[in-house]
Nucleic acid binder design. Structure first.
Lengths: 123, 123
DNA sequence: ATTTTTCTACTTCAAATGTAGTATATCAAT
DNA sequence: ATTGATATACTACATTTGAAGTAGAAAAAT
């Protein structure tokens, strides 16, 4: 797997949210905030298709798009990639870097809860 | 600040390790593992300079390079950027994604230790 | 059947990135 | 002062990314 450029990733994120077999119009709707020209989403979808991240199905006049890589799969890959790029593959280092900008108490609590959960499956 | 491309980042990482006022030869030495042609490091250093990440000082025939952005600064920025790109700015989500690939007990312990430390400064 | 509309596929273009070659300036040696 | 060695600066080029225009096919309307 390879990391996606920002724009393609945004399209894929929208597709994850909208689910499988989503029409182009839906995608464009969801991506309005980016202020792209209409055809731009088209371009990114095509590239995602070429890279094997989405499949296209013809339905009469229009297309339906389906993600071939799930959010979970991609995130698992991406998080790993991020870690090895700069953090010596150490989760701790990453969180430590974050902490430099300050972490809210809530974020700390969330992390703690997750750790407890992960540790729970230990025995 | 802007995220750096992989190659430039590798050069900057080497420079962080070697410290300020490092000679080109040292950098090239450290970057041998990448198997780049000699002049390639040169190009990346030049780009890092243009982007304001390193400063260059002339010393006789050769150059000395110094990082203008510290590792800590950059990591703080980068970790934040990563989080907002895909993890809804939630540290928890990031670690959860990592956990999908499995975290070693040691990594969990390290994280726990860091959390304890971060929470320590709470009162 | 012809025209119009509407999608989609194909093409284009500039900037950034990965990578390296060539030209030039500078220092050292004669 | 001239020549030779070296390090650096400048240029080059393919690929990728960000972004969008144009041409062509399919469907709808007349």
């Amino acid at each position: 797997m390879k990391r996606l450029p920002d724009t393609e990733l945004e399209v894929l994120k929208a597709l994850w949210t909208l689910g499988p077999d989503t029409a182009r119009a839906q995608l464009e709707e969801a991506l309005v905030p980016f202020g792209w020209a209409p055809n731009t989403v088209n371009t990114y979808l095509k590239r995602l298709e070429e890279k094997g991240f989405v499949s296209v199905r013809r339905e009469g006049k229009s297309n339906r798009y389906t993600p071939l890589v799930s959010r979970e799969e991609y995130l698992a890959f991406d998080s790993q990639a991020v870690l090895s790029r700069l953090y010596g593959s150490s989760p701790r280092n990453f969180v430590a870097a974050l902490a430099r900008n300050g972490l809210k108490q809530e974020e700390l609590d969330d992390l703690q809860a997750l750790l407890d959960e992960l540790n729970g499956g230990r025995n």
